[in-house]
Amino acid sequence: MRHALTLRIGPATFRIGSAWRAPLAQIAHLYAAYPRVEGAIADFTVRLQPTNMLRRWVRPSIFITGDHGLADAAPMSLAHGLLAAEMGMNLQMALGWRRHLLLHASSVEKDGRALVMTGESGSGKSTLAALLGERGWRLMGDEFALLDLECGAILPFPRLVSLKNGAIDVVADAVGEARMGPLLRATAKGDIRHMIPRDGAVSRMDEGATPRLLLFPRFGHRAEERAVGQGEVFMRLTQASTNYVAAGEAGFRALTRFVADVPARAVDFSSGDEAIAMVERLWDERA
């Protein structure tokens, strides 16, 4: 590819190639604190290429592909090139990672123990992880939590935090403009803006943590909390894992251990402050 860079996020190395310079310049800027490992053998290749030759110049239209691709992925506008690269990295992880059980969850750490939060897009798990990361917790990741198949630890995958719509201003106010990426308007998921994790999240991205609490956050509801039975937790986590089936017996053992060991709560909330107060209280109750 005409433009390329190789960087490491947690245990995964990505080589990102692009027919255009702009998306990679944005990636290089936002991932400046991450190890650049040019020449390394990458776990995954992400390619941003024109949907056809003309579309490199005329109303440029990006097709995301790489080692793993989706045949029916909709092309994206070049203005959303950064998002295309991020989605490309997520796609490679979701479809190709085998070394850990991949949970579609955010995670933060305190005192060597991890809080894992899982939920659908819009549940508030990214926003909550981002805000906690500014309040004494270490952000481990907003999209994927990696569950070690042997020791049961949660390992970080602290890529840029992807914030949508109403969450953008809440987090931008908390972290400041310098750590925010460009505003990407009117994407398929609405407005999106990326946040650069704090230095510690990146410099300590090889440090795992023992999971201590699992939350199922749900934004947009009256504050409420309930225990979640282990059967339901197991079912929801298999749904939240992109590679549970591929991980085979090792995945079964790791996930059942996680479910048996880690207490789970569903938390509804209507604002970030409310959610943080609930999280801190639940965490302290477990102390």
């Binding site: 039975g229 282990q230 059967g231 197991f234 017996e249 079964f252 053992r253 059942t256 479910v259 048996a260």
Partner: peptide, 11 residues
């Protein structure tokens, strides 16, 4: 099969 009991159900 490898069984695992989680509360009132078995995997």
């Amino acid at each position: 099969v490898t069984p695992c009991t989680l509360e009132d159900l078995t995997l």
